[in-house]
Design a protein around this nucleic acid. Sequence first.
RNA 1: AGCGGUAUCGUCUAGGGGUUAGGAUAGCAGAUUCUCAAUCUGUUGACACGGGUUCAAAUCCCGUUACCGCCGCCA
Length: 479
Amino acid sequence: MAEEVRVRIAPSPSGNLHVGTARTALFNYLFAKKMGGKFVLRVEDTDLERSSDAYIKNIFDSLKAMGLNWDEGPDIGGPYAPYTQSEKFDVYKKYAKELLDKGFAYECFCTQEELDEEKQRAIDEKRPHVYSGRCRDLTEEEKAKFRREGRKAVIRFKMPSKIMKFHDLIKGDLEFDTSLMGDFVIMKSNGSPTYNFAVVIDDMQMAMTHIIRGEDHISNTPKQIAIYEALGAKVPEFAHVGMILAPDRTKLSKRHGATAVSDFIEQGYLPEAFVNFVALLGWAPSDGVEIKTLDEIIADFSLESISPSNSIFEFDKLNWMNGQYIRSMDNSELTRRALKYMQQYNLSEYSTEKLEEIVASVKEPITVLSEITDAVEYYFGEDVQPNIEAQDILNAPEAKDVLSRSINLVNSFDFSDHDGLVEKLMAFRKSFENVKPKNVMWTIRAALTGRLRGAELSAVFTILGKERCLHRIKKALGE
RNA sequence: AGCGGUAUCGUCUAGGGGUUAGGAUAGCAGAUUCUCAAUCUGUUGACACGGGUUCAAAUCCCGUUACCGCCGCCA
């Protein structure tokens, strides 16, 4: 029987969940589900100063919103708890000591200044900077002397010099000359582990079978493999995904606007549309149908089909996709989500059913939920303030005639008979000799909504109701 | 500088020794319309460059270029 697939997403809570991390999480999740394995969430908060609980909450919430539920994690536990690095500093210490005892690592007392000096010399001499390893063979006396001076040691891993090869599931065969890497720090002088050390210990302890992550970690991989080997542990499979870049081809950052998943959700992107879009960055459906649920994507997914190159995050397609999801969403569900963007209005003016009608009437051209706020404005309050184009229409010579005749039209409406109402409206718009049907409609629309674009007029009539329609028409007439 | 990676329409991508190089999105044009930014139809647009290998190269190999990443007691 094949070994159970175990993968993880290991964000560090020094910021809200980033789009890039979200995509990595997605690919891990898809792979786990495809293989019938486990998707694990681990919090990498060894850098305590930059980590915060608010970010942890944001990461959890964002992942859940996208539907990427984890099988094991800090909040729900699991067979390999704890899932938070800061809770297992003693474990890292134990393994560091083991490496020390077995001669795979050593204490280094170099100060920051000494290190900087080494580095500067390397730059001046135009050769690659690699730590000299001058502390490798310190005698006990020398160590004691440094300690008396008050120097705190870090622990460095003895990087073996060799050509290290490994097969990456996405990038193919990779090889590195590890003599170019030098002995790197695994335990900081304050007793906390560095990233490269903590990941290996955790991935090993948590029995990870595949490490799927961003290609910014490719150069770390040889170091990590060396640690696995020193510990006599099984080395997992690696799969490095390309990066997500901003339209200017640089790393996606704050100056490009939204970078956190929660920013997108806040702006009114539906989490399910967002996940769908992100999945398409680096992966393509075999049948060409791009709009798919997570389950459909799982069915069609494979690691090998992920593109090895970087991809640019452009809004065009995200916007289109979000619009598709909005249009196809059930009205009551859509209304429930849209309410958040309608809080500035007096919602008690309408029943729940009416609110659903309102949302349904304006949803068609919307790409982002936050546009609902503006789209729905004219349904609230007694009066509307015509915008410039609407005012122009209202000022046209034929407007008065159209409006006064529309009073009779409204009076003739049976508001409970929508089809009949549409029929009368259609007849009305063609009943003028000198006014084009389009202008008839524009004039009424201007009076009712204060603008020239919006929901279908018949819907506006029905939702506003007889009294308010008459009121607004008369107001536009100057009465 | 060094090391590593990547290279198909503007963008996301399919394909991959012989194809009219396909789709999506954006753009453009038209249709439609209870206003429209929705919808429908049509259309512009790509294998980075140079050498090989081969009957045949966008596809395989080498080099060049460009871009990205890594070189922290950040993760």
